[in-house]
Design a protein around this nucleic acid. Structure first.
Lengths: 211, 211
DNA sequence: GTCTATAACGAGATAGAC
DNA sequence: GTCTATCTCGTTATAGAC
């Protein structure tokens, strides 16, 4: 069957989720997928190549519904709320954790690094689009780098997922704190031209100090 | 010699840094440490136990000088600047990366989870102290949860380290964006009572919506 | 405490029947 | 495309000499 490939990809994702990257082998993947171990090599050549395919597949499956919800958002705090929803869902489903595991593995594996960077980009792009849209009419828009912020949000989210795995209460506290922090941005936004002038002055001073 | 233990711990850290957690075995550790492979088991019983010891050691070695620098900081943007300095230093030295690798491994290993949670706490505590101190006289102090924020910062930093490994330019952009974001907090701080009143109102409204 | 040697096993990968 | 069988190597861990 042609869907053996798919079963192996799904098996790889599930195995990483359950046993981590260190517990993910051709044998354990095949067992989870319910197929013969040799088929890993027939279809993908090496275990590494299968992991690369699984990395992109796991991300694509999760990003699409997330991107749809992002499109409906109207303010920054809703973005954070969506982040929390995603976080809760991922604790049950766990595809972001799969990406986190592969990201760790990618640190010493250039090929896997390409795949994980591409997967992360799948998250970053819709987030950046949402940020740009939300800040379009705002006076602080010109002062915020949406491209960089989207990357910081995505990378930070991965870090929080990993942290949640070893200290769930701490991760909850972290998310609560970020919730409160997001309010600051909206307040500055609401304050209008006064705050923006103050911001511009601050940023100019900052730029000078940096050089 | 009694310092064989230490050489093994250092070897473990260096091996994780160079080859990742998947490439870290009793043999590779011993080779890096320049000692016999059997000594891993004589001194630590199992590879896992050595990794736990290495996790705490790697963190303790890095946290102390960082905590000292934290004590000299006088505003939030200096905190972010220190974060950048740390980030640059860690790219060369790489102990945070070791923690990130172990954190990924800890997701499916309760014993390692304990060790990594404890290690993360070593970072979180001085950061929380610094935040509390910096915000002591500020009007926004009561509106910010320093405990949660310190956790978010620490976890987010780990995520950025991992992201840097697969997309260095993206990570730089992310850090730049956070730099700009930090200015927002200071501006609100400078605006004084007006902004604080606006914040309080926002937070009250938020609390209602949450319930 | 440190070494050699080795047991016991699981890993990636391949050959070849079907 | 799928299976069994197997090769080769690296893995954890231990036994026992020194």
């Amino acid at each position: 069957m042609a869907d053996t490939r798919q079963r192996l990809i799904d098996g790889a994702i599930e195995t990483i989720r359950a046993h981590g990257l260190t517990g993910t082998t051709a044998r354990s993947i095949a067992a989870t997928a319910g197929v013969n171990q040799a088929l890993v090599f027939y279809h993908f050549g090496t275990v590494h190549d299968l992991l690369q395919a699984a990395c992109l597949a796991a991300t694509r499956a999760r990003v699409q519904p997330f991107a749809d919800q992002l499109g409906k958002i109207t303010d920054l705090r809703q973005l954070l709320a969506l982040g929390r929803t995603l976080h809760t869902a991922e604790r049950a489903e766990g595809n972001v954790m799969v990406l986190a595991q592969l990201l760790a593995g990618a640190q010493t594996d250039p090929k896997l690094a390409e795949a994980t960077a591409a997967s992360l980009q799948l998250w970053i792009t819709p987030i950046e689009d949402a940020l740009t849209r939300l800040l379009a009419g705002s006076p602080v828009a010109e002062l915020i780098d949406t491209a960089g912020l989207a990357r910081a949000v995505s990378a930070g989210f991965i870090g929080l997922e990993l942290y949640e795995g070893v200290d769930p209460e701490g991760a909850q506290a972290a998310l609560d704190a970020l919730d409160r922090l997001a309010v600051l941005i909206e307040v500055v936004d609401d304050l209008g031209p006064v705050a923006v002038r103050a911001l511009r002055a601050k940023l100019r001073k900052t730029a000078k100090n940096r050089i």
